[in-house]
């Protein structure tokens, strides 16, 4: 055996376990769901091949069409609000922490702590706080604003926003820390040069710092897109599988689960349609992430 072959063998030997796990747990189910989505299902048994019928149903037939559009709309809300509030907020927090404001070490830890909490525990606690007689309403009453008291998770018009807010509260520490690290890595000489040229703080931020941290912005954006399309646990724990009240918190994640497995109180699973929704989620995540990587990547600046 020559050196080259033995090297290849060793490398394959080390890669194989991880590769097998990825194939069995990620790639195989992906193709299985693609395969399943092309068939008609009767209860839990696969029937005839129907091509893209299931997909057609989701896009054009009632009631699938309404439910899917409604869920997609909510995913879009998640994406837009998370982008604007969480990521922009995180960018500013990261910036101020990097300016070494008073007590920044303390804030850094405080802001990051919720990221470490279990998603289910956070959702459960916040659903207690957001009850009609929970902490949030009690606080509003205390500070003399009882007119703003709401059934936060029970009102169709605000339930989704309440859940998004809780998730932002939980996760804002993550972009903050990523941006802080990125800003700290901006070379001192660039900043010094800008200062010597008489640039104001705002100008330095927008013209020097921002272009130099584009790689982090790309990563955070892609993660936000993936996260917003896949959101499930928060809804499941705070509003239930049915996207209650009246489907106002439904996302494609909960819609997928409900359709594929059927919820406890409502019966018949539709595995074909569920798999088709799963495939759509996958394609959307893939395509949108790809677009954002390509377009944002062009804005990257090299020193």
């Amino acid at each position: 055996m020559n050196k080259r072959t033995s090297e290849t063998l060793w490398i394959s030997f080390f890669i194989a376990p991880a590769l097998i796990i990825v194939c069995v747990i990620i790639i195989l189910p992906l193709f299985m769901s693609l395969f399943n989505s092309l068939f008609l299902w009767d209860q839990l048994i696969r029937q005839n091949f129907v091509g893209f019928q299931n997909f057609k149903k989701i896009f054009f037939t009632e009631p699938y069409h309404t439910r899917f559009a409604n869920a997609m709309g909510n995913n879009l809300r998640w994406l837009v609000l998370t982008m604007i509030v969480q990521n922009v907020g995180g960018l500013f927090i990261g910036y101020f922490l990097s300016r070494r404001i008073w007590g920044h070490e303390f804030y850094k830890r405080i802001i990051f702590i919720p990221v470490l909490f279990s998603i289910v525990a956070v959702s459960f606690l916040w659903s207690l706080y957001l009850r009609p007689n929970g902490l949030v309403n009690a606080f509003l009453k205390l500070i003399g604003l009882p007119q703003f008291m709401r059934p936060w998770l029970g009102d169709e018009s605000i339930a989704t926003y309440s859940i998004i807010f809780v998730n932002i509260w939980r996760w804002i520490g993550f972009p903050s820390l990523v941006f802080l690290a990125a800003i700290d890595n901006v070379p001192m000489d660039c900043l010094e040069a800008a200062c010597l040229d008489g640039a104001s703080d705002t100008r330095v931020f927008f013209k020097v710092i921002l272009p130099l941290i584009v790689p982090s912005i790309v990563i955070i954006t892609v993660l936000t897109i993936i996260g917003s399309l896949n959101v499930f646990e928060q809804i499941y724990t705070m509003a239930g599988l049915d996207g209650s009240p009246n489907f106002s918190t439904d996302t494609i994640g909960t819609l997928f689960y409900r359709t594929a497995f059927g919820s406890v109180d409502s019966g018949k699973p539709e595995i074909g349609i569920g798999s088709a929704i799963g495939v759509i989620i996958y394609l959307l995540t893939f395509v949108v992430s790809l677009i954002s990587i390509v377009t944002l990547g062009k804005k990257e600046v090299e020193l």
């Binding site: 659903s127 957001l130 009850r131 009609p132 007689n133 309403n137 008291m149 709401r150 059934p151 936060w152 998770l153 029970g154 009102d155 009240p245």
Partner: peptide
């Protein structure tokens, strides 16, 4: 109850 739309089964 007050704000009954936010009142859950356990409540």
């Amino acid at each position: 109850p007050d704000m009954y739309m936010g009142v859950s089964y356990t409540d």
